[in-house]
Design a protein around this nucleic acid. Structure first.
Lengths: 239, 239
DNA sequence: CCGACAATGGGGGAAATCCCTCAATATCGC
DNA sequence: GCGATATTGAGGGATTTCCCCCATTGTCGG
């Protein structure tokens, strides 16, 4: 099977990249992951920066908690502890759920086997760090390295396509500051003082100061140090 | 060819993941990318945060500038303008070099064709944002979406494996600050002033100030604003 | 043309940070 | 126990940032 699966994965990705609605993405993922034993899916955007890791759920489907019921987004957020691991994850990982005496126990494993719900969690990174993740789960899953790779490929493209469709073409938060302001803040984050920045950009010290004040006001923060953090978080300047 | 290539890519990735030295990675990449027309390679770690984007080159090979000579790392850094585009890139992209009147012109294109050197640039992201990239180039390259996907897969695994081998198992910079220092810096990043932090943590204003000075010294930065950036970048505090 | 806003700059003064040095505990590894 | 390091705190002064006000120029959309 695996000799074919790689090619199928590539075809799925290409189809997903061209998808024009979420349903198309979903059916592609189902068609690819189904034969590998996966029948539960979650796709969401995330951020390591926010207080709430989980930002918005694009797609949730299947009997995630083994109680025979489908799960809605809120429930998933509240109950699934797997998502917490994505903050430390650097690449896709398999997990398994074992039912113990004191509730469910989720563990990260090399290759899940046996009874219970297992799954693959695929973190998705971008210029800002963690940007989202896809979880795939099932009871009898193909947990080979081959499956990890191909599912990872499909999951990443599914996330990117879903975000493209659901979050609009481009309009995000990276536009609160004007160009000059971003520039001044970038130099500030680089360790330059107001006088130095003024010299670098050919401005008066006063202007740099005024820019910084306006930046603080715009970002709604009290100090320049905090402005750096918020700007990084918003993608205004690079970390 | 492509029906086979996807499977070959997966096998290459699995081999690369198990590689124990750089040479093994290189030969895997060559074996996979060669038949697609790529015979120039660069693999390097990067950071959108550094003043110097390029941090260290793991591997450079081939006649990158079309002058019949192999290129060493320093030359590549100085001369290749393609790397500058990775700061804005969100996914792998093709580029092409056209020789114009006033020097070489590098452009990002959908699918490079015709005479000249073309290539694929694959940015690699991680929890901290941009962490590295791989460039593959050649004169007669397969620039299909299929090649983009499979080469991307191979490039990412090559980068991760090379970093694992060359930068040691784990020892990175996420432990330069003491617990208290991290705490103080976190509150600073949250917009609190020294007095406020002192009150919150039950310290004297002097102590907070001393902590901040030591933080700056340790991180090797000039201002607290810069310390915030560097600390976020190093994973000391959350963005 | 006129309001909105980016970008520039200034005066004056209050507040905060930064820099140097020095010193006392406390803890941990060897 | 002894050195290294974390954590705490201080004196005193030099810089720097921050905050309130204000004004000018230019650009852009309605």
């Amino acid at each position: 099977m695996s000799a074919v699966a790689a090619e199928v994965a590539v075809r799925s990705v290409l189809a997903i990249e061209d998808a024009e609605d979420l349903a198309a993405i979903e059916s592609e993922v189902r068609a690819f992951a189904g034969p590998l034993g996966y029948d539960r899916f979650v796709l969401f955007s995330a951020s390591a920066a926010q207080d709430e890791v989980l930002q918005s759920i694009y797609w949730v489907e299947g009997d995630w908690f083994g109680d025979g019921e489908s799960v809605d987004a809120e429930t998933y957020i509240r109950r699934c502890p797997v998502t917490r691991h994505i903050l430390e994850a650097h690449e896709p990982f398999f997990w398994t759920k074992t039912v113990g005496d004191n509730g469910d126990l989720y563990r990260i494993v090399r290759a899940p086997r046996g009874r219970g719900i297992h799954g693959l969690q695929v973190p998705i990174f971008g210029p800002l760090g963690l940007e989202g993740a896809m979880s795939l789960g099932g009871e009898q899953i193909d947990a080979s390295a081959h499956a990890r790779l191909t599912l990872g490929l499909v999951a990443v493209s599914a996330f990117l396509a879903a975000r493209r469709i659901l979050e609009g073409p481009a309009g995000d938060a990276a536009g609160k500051l004007s160009g000059r302001e971003r520039q001044v803040l970038a130099w500030t984050a680089a360790g330059r003082r107001q006088v130095e920045i003024a010299a670098t950009l050919g401005l008066s010290e006063r202007t740099v100061e005024n820019h910084l004040r306006r930046i603080r006001k715009r970002l709604g923060v009290a100090t320049t140090a905090q402005a750096i953090r918020v700007a990084i978080r918003n993608g205004e300047i690079a970390a």
